[in-house]
């Protein structure tokens, strides 16, 4: 029977590896997408899969590490609070940026079929 420590460490390490892979995928995706509105998908993958889940994994790992002493509970709590803050703020910020860029006609929709909000920006 596995101990609680080994299970928590395994789950934490799995979440960290998922986060590292998602960060790499997001960085490559910024080069392969063709216009600004498609790159928002790459940015969302980078912030949610790459930064919220690894922080939860880091808090699970730091609960099991006894070398940190009594501070390990503080580290676990602060990591979860940071994960909640990033989870709430990152989509709101990029949504405001996307709305402003579309309204100010800064970026065109290059391979475009139709743009229902503003047909001048198409193509």
């Amino acid at each position: 029977m596995l101990s609680i420590e080994a299970v928590l460490r395994g789950v934490g390490a799995a979440l960290l590896c998922l986060g590292a892979f998602a960060g790499l995928v997001s960085a490559i995706g910024f080069y392969r997408f063709k216009n600004f509105y498609l790159r928002l998908h790459a940015a969302t993958v980078g912030t949610i899969w790459g930064c919220v889940f690894p922080l939860i994994g880091a808090s699970l790992i730091s609960v099991t590490m006894d070398e940190l002493g009594e501070v390990k509970w503080f580290a676990a709590g602060a990591s979860i609070v940071t994960a909640a803050i990033v989870f709430l703020l990152a989509p709101a910020g990029s949504h405001a940026l996307a709305r402003a860029v579309h309204r100010a006609h800064v970026a065109r929709v290059q391979p475009c079929i139709s743009d229902a909000l503003d047909p001048n920006l198409c193509g």
């Binding site: 986060g19 910024f30 912030t47 790459g50 930064c51 922080l55 990033v86 910020g93």
Partner: peptide, 10 residues
């Protein structure tokens, strides 16, 4: 820059 900073947090 947004994504760079969130990765810096991790």
């Amino acid at each position: 820059i947004d994504v760079i900073t969130y990765i810096t947090v991790v």
